[in-house]
Design a protein around this nucleic acid. Structure first.
Lengths: 145, 145
DNA sequence: AAAAGTTGATATTTATAAATATCAATTTCT
DNA sequence: AGAAATTGATATTTATAAATATCAACTTTT
């Protein structure tokens, strides 16, 4: 996490982000379809990526290429983030929440209705933002227990 | 988990276990080397597997073949089990524990010295036993928070 | 004694996830 | 106007994890 005030601003179109990461545009769209990344979308539907997004994607690439964790594995690990604690979900909200029960999809890949998340944008949610790094997830779990 | 009183007994030599699982003997040894399974060992060093072991291995095979989670991914997920809660590890014990800090290896792949685990056999530990199924790990985390 | 187990290499095969490359029809950016 | 973006297919390539198959030298089981 760099200390830059434009760290979270939508700066890069998909082609620039792909160049920064040295991967193809298609791969970026694939990561999005899998729920690993949520880029900004202009009204025109064009994607824009922040520096934070690029860092998140670098982290994902390390997990895939160095740690040898498959995309399905990363999704499963993301699904273990105790989102209900971060969002202060009530007991009733949890029981009605597909994300709470999920164990192969991150919470932010679900549609949230009639719960604290319905008003939020997952892109700017702490659940999505603070734990891109798999290594931080254990610390997170530890901190909540 | 079948309701059989011989469920946890060392019954099958490696060749029989391999046949039951329809995989090769070498693959079973590989899973052991990766820390996914801890079979019984006779004094002669020969492996023996229980029905519980076979069920655990079936679960691991489903994660690999159906859920498409890589072995490295499974190990990472296992490392997220809050062992320190299950074993009632003290704060000081945690800080001295490699397993507590690990995020790519299950706790039972470490040597435990001078902590509550040093007296235990991981094979018969709840951390190892009760959460072979990845889907149960989220429930476990939830239960502790 | 023969069969089956052990460790520890190394080498090869197989299966498939991950990534790339296309296409087309359309829209937006500069 | 031309470049670059969009969605949504389909097809192919590439990289490598997972699994198998070998060795050899030795020990244990039956």
């Amino acid at each position: 996490m760099e200390n830059l005030d434009n760290y979270d601003l939508p700066l890069f179109p998909i082609s620039s982000a792909a160049k920064l990461l040295n991967i193809s545009v298609h791969t970026l769209r694939m990561y999005e379809k899998e729920g690993l990344i949520i880029p900004f979308k202009k009204e025109s539907n064009h994607r824009l990526y922040s520096k934070a997004d690029v860092d998140r994607l670098k982290c994902i690439r390390r997990a895939i290429n160095e740690s040898k964790i498959s995309i399905a594995g990363i999704k499963t690990i993301y699904s273990l983030i105790p989102c209900w604690e971060i969002t202060k979900c009530s007991g009733e909200d949890r029981n009605n929440c597909l994300a709470f029960k999920a164990h192969s999809q991150p919470c932010w890949t679900f549609k949230h209705e009639n719960n604290p998340c319905s008003k939020k944008n997952c892109r700017s949610c702490d659940v999505y933002n603070q734990y891109a790094e798999c290594t931080k997830i254990k610390e997170l779990i530890t901190s909540f227990i």
